[in-house]
Design a protein around this nucleic acid. Structure first.
Lengths: 124, 124
DNA sequence: TTATTTTAGCAACAAAGTTGCATTAATATG
DNA sequence: CATATTAATGCAACTTTGTTGCTAAAATAA
């Protein structure tokens, strides 16, 4: 277990307090004077390794972070749907939704990442 | 319709001749002395707009390009599965596979991007 | 309270992608 | 077929995003 520093606590609070997934840039804006840009990257890495947050790559390639809600610390998986709104740009997790995959038997599935793009409930 | 230049023709040939999706870097390696790095970016943009190729963001955030096979030029969609091998790094399209989504009715789905990470048929 | 180990800050770097502008090549027009 | 027109290319410069090495500063252990 890594050390609980002020910056780490603050960043986890920000991510857990957000209903949408946040980019490094968005987190940086909310942590002015708390810590350095590089430190944010390192804290995000630590939080991902400790299964506190998960990393989502948006359809546009932008990396986002969201708190893990339904993942127990022992069985960690992010196999759920992410919705990316093309209007407001917000990335939302649907942690209760999973899908069925039918790939050839030789393929060993480890995890999947599913991002749906469209218009979210607020913008439609 | 954009102009068919030597570089554009060459890049489309490379992508269409590949069984896996290719990164900008991989394409650049195969187009030494054909054109500039920036030109490759611009040609890839053009090919995407003309529905000749599609852009796939891998689980690791790396952008890849693959030829459109099942997309007609009128109805263009990339709603299929991409498999990203964690061993050999190759990104393969499964154009015959699609999935069912059950999101709240307020959400308007435009397209989705599904990338499965694991071990591919060749590496398993 | 001091020793140990992790984390933070800073600078520098690297990869990926973008923009502006002059030059060159491809198509259209007479 | 020559020339005008428009689009594409090359180059340099720049931006964004993320990484690495190293010293100083904190957090935990002893």
């Amino acid at each position: 277990m890594s050390r609980n520093t002020i910056a780490k606590t603050r960043i986890l609070e920000i991510i857990q307090g957000s209903s949408i997934a946040l980019t490094h840039a968005a987190i940086q804006e909310q942590t002015r004077d708390v810590c350095d840009r590089v430190t944010i990257y390192r804290i995000l890495d630590r939080l991902v390794n400790e299964n506190e947050i998960h990393r989502i790559v948006n359809v546009n390639g932008v990396v986002n972070f969201a708190a893990c809600k339904r993942c127990s610390h022992s069985s960690h998986h992010h196999d759920h749907i992410h919705f990316s709104c093309i209007k407001c740009g917000e990335l939302t997790c649907f942690e209760d939704q999973s899908i069925d995959l039918n790939l050839p038997s030789k393929y060993i599935i480890q995890e999947y990442q599913l991002t749906v793009a469209g218009i979210c409930g607020k913008c439609s």
